[in-house]
Design a protein around this nucleic acid. Structure first.
Length: 742
DNA sequence: AACTTCGGCTTTTTT
DNA sequence: AGCCGAAGTT
């Protein structure tokens, strides 16, 4: 008998029950901080090391790439070996893998591509125009939402009934046209990945049986976030093997807006009556006070399965509540407190997290942190592959992989401007529409027909040639070589270099980074399941769409963590600041009226609170600048739902406004040590020559101004200065001869 | 065809 | 406040 204590010893009774379960389905209702991931990981270790199952017979699925990475590394850690053939990934990632393997069965071109949300929106807009539907009556975002919602529920256009409603009929028409366009171009959107996978499993018993036999166990994380298709997909994969191991928490369901159905938890128990339910209610994360407060809050939700977390931990500190004067004061308060924890109580910066409802809120805190010279890191927000310049470059790569990619064609054809304007493009579109071919093919046809004005013909000829040339060269090049050549030949770098809005330099740097990323990706590809050179490009494009670059693995500096509540799920921090807890913002005004959405907002608040281990702060501003105008929001109803006995009101103690600013401003320029490092994307203090936000400066040419912003590091460090009469300019610190004033 | 200006609208969250 | 599309100007 081998030693299995490493698997069982760290577990409590119910956790052990779940991990060692035999026969039948398991539903693990795991409260926040109750060791959910641990149970999943140990379950897998149990199956492999005790039941001696082969890794390839296991399937583990999560929702976010982050969670998938975490699970993968923890599995490898406990097994002390690579996960081998185990399928561990997100629903979308696994579906993609499946469709790549079965592209013929799914009636997809071998190099089908993935449409991300931005591509999707552009496509919808284009179709609305083609169908002559007014964007004000058919807001593209809502039309897109309609399409996605239907797909998430597993409905194709032909399943839909307009019920005699004109508007509905039009929506269905757009959906149908949208789908046809995607198919013509060999493109698949996020929802399609799941839907097509489901359809294939449903319609092909042979394939279904193959996978049903292969997977001895199917483990699902965050089951409460599954949508209709994902659930149906799991059922097909499981067949009647009763091999499902689902972990979830109805109180942490926060993705209803993208089709997630908490009800799947109940449906599951109905659909599989032989399911054993395990409840994990002991919390190992938070103090008693934090837990009590969170429990009290979530108790206000009428529709829940019911569960009460408890802890052996001490009560701990009360929750601290701060009523800020305005949003700037709120940020200042938070940063002061963080400074206190770090300098006086020995916390690392990375142990402090600022959680907010909307991404837009991050800026205030970033500014305050920059000002205080505290390194920070923002999660989420604009991801690498979503940046305009990266999408531009990717459009060229996509065309090389598949010239029929209309979305990419539209984007690349006149970026940078090469004289193919709206008029010419309209010509192409019409030709494409009439002959039912891609824009690429239409361009070739039109060019061959000689029916183009000479100027347009020349420009188009060059563009087609550019792509063709690289298509031929691609097989002999590494990804980075291809990307590099393409960016240069397309003139993208030059285009951005000349851009004068101050962002140009950044964009050029990002293009450089894209080439690097491509190179690294190519290297890492070695062990993956890629056959020919051609597939490297396809894999890279898929990677860009599916992971959108949230890795940012570089920044390992100890830094304060900033993120939305959604991206905080699954994480924990000793010190948590839950900010902007105001009516209108949290709960968000778009959700406050609908009871279901309100419940989801409350769950989001619950998620946020339960991230905290030692100390939880909640703050709200009495006045907030929002979209230009001034707002006087009420404190959130959620604050009232936390028992007063657990909360202590704080005033901005100790550090007054002037003291907080003084600490940065009182140092004479130049005397600051380089060791006092700045936040991510901010110049080193030594490099900065002692500039900080709000500081007066003099420039030989532009005169006097005030520092507004800064970004980049080292030689790339730049600051934005508002000059009197001149407006704001971005200046490269290394070159600009700036003189500090005051 | 390219560039400028103006006005409306927006963002809740992510694969 | 900032972004995008529409309309107007060169």
């Amino acid at each position: 008998m081998e030693d299995i204590s490493h698997i069982l010893a760290p577990l409590n009774e119910p956790q052990r029950d779940a991990v060692t379960a035999t026969g039948g389905n398991r539903l693990v209702l795991a409260g926040a901080g109750s060791g959910k991931t641990r149970v999943l990981v140990h379950r897998i270790a149990w199956l492999i090391q005790v039941e001696h199952l082969a890794p390839w017979s296991l399937l583990a699925v999560t929702f976010t790439n982050k969670a998938a990475r975490e699970m993968r590394s923890r599995i490898e850690e406990i097994l002390q070996q690579p996960i081998g053939g185990m399928w561990v990934g997100t629903f979308h990632g696994l579906a993609h893998r499946f469709l790549r393997a079965h592209w013929q069965d799914a009636k997809l071109p071998q190099h089908f591509q993935i449409l991300d949300a931005d591509d999707q929106l552009r496509l919808v807009k284009r179709l609305l125009k083609e169908l002559q539907l007014d964007e004000s009556r058919y807001p593209p975002r809502q039309v897109m939402g309609f399409i996605n919602r239907e797909k998430d529920e597993g409905r194709r256009p032909e399943h839909l009934d307009d019920g005699g409603d004109f508007y509905q009929r039009k929506l269905i028409e757009v959906y149908r046209e949208y789908q046809a366009t995607c198919e013509r171009a060999g493109q698949v959107d996020f929802a399609d990945l799941l839907l097509k996978t489901h359809e294939l499993l449903r319609d092909r018993p042979d394939i279904r049986h193959h996978y049903q036999e292969r997977f001895a166990h199917i483990l699902v994380d965050e089951f409460q976030d599954t949508n209709a298709i994902q659930y149906a997909w799991l059922r097909l994969l499981a067949g009647d093997r009763d091999n499902l191991f689902l972990v979830g928490d109805d109180d942490q369901s926060i993705y209803g807006w993208r089709g997630a159905r908490v009800e799947n938890i109940q449906s599951f128990q109905r659909d599989y009556p032989n399911t054993q339910v395990v409840r994990l209610e002991q919390n190992y994360r938070s103090t008693g006070n934090i837990l009590q407060a969170a429990n009290a809050l979530i108790a206000h939700n009428p529709t829940r399965l019911g569960k009460n977390l408890w802890t052996q931990d001490a009560e701990g500190e009360p929750i601290l509540r701060y009523a800020a004067f305005n949003e700037v004061d709120e940020a200042r308060f938070v940063v002061d407190r963080i400074r206190g924890y770090v300098t006086e109580e020995g916390y690392r910066r990375a142990e402090c997290a600022i959680l907010y409802r909307t991404t837009a809120q991050s800026r205030l805190f970033e500014e305050a942190l920059i000002n205080a010279q505290i390194p920070y890191r923002v999660y989420g927000g604009l991801r690498f592959f979503e940046r305009a310049e990266i999408k531009d470059a990717m459009a060229y790569l996509r065309l090389v992989a598949n010239p029929d990619d209309d979305t990419a064609f539209e984007r690349a054809v006149n970026t940078p401007m090469r004289g193919i304007g709206p008029r010419t493009l309209e010509n192409l579109r019409e030709q494409a529409r009439e002959t039912r071919v891609s824009l690429w093919q239409a361009a070739r046809d039109l060019l061959a027909s000689g029916n183009l004005p000479p100027r347009a013909a020349g420009a188009i000829g060059q563009f087609l040639d550019l792509i063709d040339r690289h298509r031929r060269a691609a097989p002999d090049l590494n990804l980075d070589g291809l990307a590099n050549d393409l960016i240069a030949a397309a003139g993208l770098e030059e285009h951005y270099r000349k851009e004068k809005d101050g962002k140009g330099q950044d964009r050029v740097e990002n293009l450089g980074q894209l080439v690097e990323t491509a190179g690294r990706f190519h290297l890492e590809l070695g062990d993956a399941e890629i056959e020919g050179e051609n597939d490297a490009l396809a894999a890279f494009l898929a990677h860009a769409a599916l992971e959108s670059g949230d890795t940012q693995a570089d920044e390992f500096e100890d830094s304060v963590q900033l993120m939305t509540l959604h991206s905080a799920k699954g994480l924990e921090f000793p010190i948590v600041f839950l900010v902007g807890v105001e009516e209108g913002l949290f709960p968000h005004s778009l959700s406050a009226d609908d009871p279901h959405r309100l419940e989801e907002e409350r769950r989001l608040c619950y998620v946020g609170m339960t991230r905290a281990m030692h100390q939880l702060f909640v703050s709200h501003a009495e006045s907030r600048r929002f979209r230009g105008s001034e707002d006087r929001p009420f404190p959130s109803r959620f604050l009232r739902e936390i028992p007063a006995a657990l909360v202590r009101e704080v005033r901005a103690g100790g550090l007054s406004r002037s003291a907080a600013w003084g600490s940065a401003a009182s140092l004479a320029p130049g005397t600051r040590q380089a060791g006092a490092s700045w936040g991510a994307g901010v110049p080193e203090a030594g490099q900065g020559g002692g500039f900080h936000l709000g500081q007066g400066v003099r420039h030989p040419k532009f005169g006097e101004g005030v520092v507004l912003n800064s970004e980049g590091r080292g030689a790339a460090a730049r600051i934005q200065v508002k000059f009197h009469g001149e407006g704001a300019k971005w200046l490269v610190l290394a070159y600009a001869k700036l003189e500090p004033l005051g």
